[in-house]
Every structure is written in structure tokens, then in C-alpha cells.
Nucleic acid binder design. Structure first.
Lengths: 140, 140
DNA sequence: GTACCTGCAAATTGTTTGCCCCCAG
DNA sequence: CTGGGGGCAAACAATTTGCAGGTAC
């Protein structure tokens, strides 16, 4: 299931540049939910100092090609979060304090979502199921 | 369950002003998911031309008092959405094209969320369960 | 070689703040 | 009357865009 960054880029007809490769690598290796700035700082930490706009532009094209997904988190300060697209499936357990995020494998709602869509005449494109809580470390 | 705007304000120790009343009324009568600008324009349509900052400030205090919730939507352009707080419960069927939003009453995952939290040592604060699709009107 | 990509800086857009006047309690 | 609340404009923050030069293919 896991693909390498250059492969993914090539498959979508995008030119393979070290900027894109590095950005995609970060997203692939992160558990989840990164902001554009997170990525920018992460790059800096690796002494890869690209412009912030490159990060944004790369994220947009990756989003257009359905490689990553953009999302918002509840109660947050208006930043956008990016993560590798999982074909419309997101199941996370998120700590509301430290934003740590655990990926859930189970999906107990597949049949439910399909039924709801059918009932309302919608064409299902995906769903998001996120549980919010305070993780053990943040409970003091 | 449904309360009037002045009641809700008074109960939280907030002064009742026509601005707050009007903004809260809009939120109460909307099916869901409004941006600050939506509210601003809605007010204008009713010839209630308050400043945009009043809308934001009102929304913040309402949020502090747990009357409304702020949230982000997947794939969106970086705006914050506001809606009446349902104590951490959100179950929506959202059209990815027109953003129309249907509120779901059922919650098939109550016990599942509790179990997941327990398994990871988290203290549950809420969950979000949203289904995305294309509504009948947008299918052409 | 050409079209697409990057970098920088300036422009936009969404949201917050400061200051002063005003109204609800 | 008094303090929180509202209006306006300026500040801030996140993201986008225009343009000149570079680089993958």
C-alpha cells in the first residue's frame, strides 16, 4: 500500500523535483495532520530551506491530484491541516491539547454511511470519523 | 431542547443586545455550518448592518460560553465554520459541491468511541462523524 | 528547448485588536 | 451610573499570486 514519493508524483504526471519529493516524504512519514508551517519547519530542520510558497503550491497540486487531503480541525485557530489522502477515509483519535493523533484501523460505519447516503439520494464520496479526547500525557 | 436566543444569553451571564440576539438567532435557525461571513451577509439581508468584527467578537464569546462551536470542513478554503454546540456531537451529511448539510439524528458509534478512548487511555471529549457525498441537486 | 517549477515579495483574504463612544442592567 | 459591548480602522496571520529565472524531461 505504501508508495514512494517519486512513484506517486510520476504516476500523477507531476515533475519529480527534490522539493516535492521532500514535502511528500514528510507527509508520508508523519502519523497525520500537518500544517503548511509544520512542513516548512520540518524542511528547515533538514536544512532544506525552500520558500513557504513552494510548500503551499506543492500542497495544492498534490491536493488536485488526490495525493493529499486538506482538512480543518475543530476548535482550532484557523489553520489548514494536510495529510496523505486515504480515499476519503479518515479515522483518527486526536488529543485536543497536544494535537497528537492516533490512526484507527477499524471502521465500524461502512454500512451505515452507505445506508444514509442512499436514504438521502447522495452519491457517497467519503466520510470522516474522528474522536476527540485528552491523551494520557496531557491529563497531568 | 430548543431555547430562545435571549434565554441562552442570559443563562451564560452575557448581556442581551440586539446584535447578539440576531446572530444567535441566525445560528439557531440554520441547519448547520455557517462562516462568519455567511452570518454577516445574512444580517445585511435583514438590514441589520453590524460590523464584521462584532460578528467575530460575538462568535468568540458564544464559543467561550459553549453555546456555539467552531470547526473546519475538509477540502475547504480555510474558513472557520460555526454552529450551535451540541456537546461535542456532530453528525452531518455534507454535499461536497454545494456545502448543503443535513443533520443526522442517529449516532451508531457512541459505544465504539468510548471503547477506543479507553483502549488508548484518552479522556473522551467528543467526536465528529461526517459523511461526504454529492447531493441529488449537484449530480446534474 | 520548452513547459513546468521555484523563489521572492507583494497582494489577498480571514480574523483579531485598540480605542473611544454607547447602551443594558 | 458603570462596565461590558459595539463600530470603525488598523494590525495580524494564513494563504495566494505575479513575475523572473531555473530545471526536469
Amino acid at each position: 500500500m505504501k508508495q514512494s514519493a517519486p512513484e506517486l508524483l510520476k504516476k500523477s504526471g507531476l515533475k519529480v523535483t527534490k522539493q516535492r519529493e521532500a514535502i511528500l516524504d514528510i507527509l508520508l512519514s508523519s502519523p497525520a495532520h500537518l500544517t503548511a508551517e509544520d512542513i516548512y519547519l520540518d524542511l528547515k530542520a533538514k536544512s532544506l530551506d525552500f520558500g513557504l510558497s513552494t510548500v503551499y503550491r506543492t500542497l495544492s497540486s498534490l491536493e488536485e491530484h488526490r495525493i493529499v487531503e486538506k482538512t480543518g480541525l475543530p476548535g482550532d485557530t484557523g489553520k489548514q491541516y494536510y495529510e496523505i489522502a486515504h480515499l476519503g477515509h479518515r479515522h483518527h483519535l486526536v488529543c485536543v491539547k497536544c494535537k497528537r493523533c492516533i490512526v484507527l484501523d477499524e471502521c465500524p460505519v461502512e454500512s451505515f454511511t452507505a445506508a444514509v447516503c442512499k436514504a438521502h439520494g447522495f452519491t457517497l464520496t467519503g466520510h470522516s470519523f474522528e474522536i476527540f479526547g485528552v491523551c494520557p500525557d496531557c491529563q497531568n
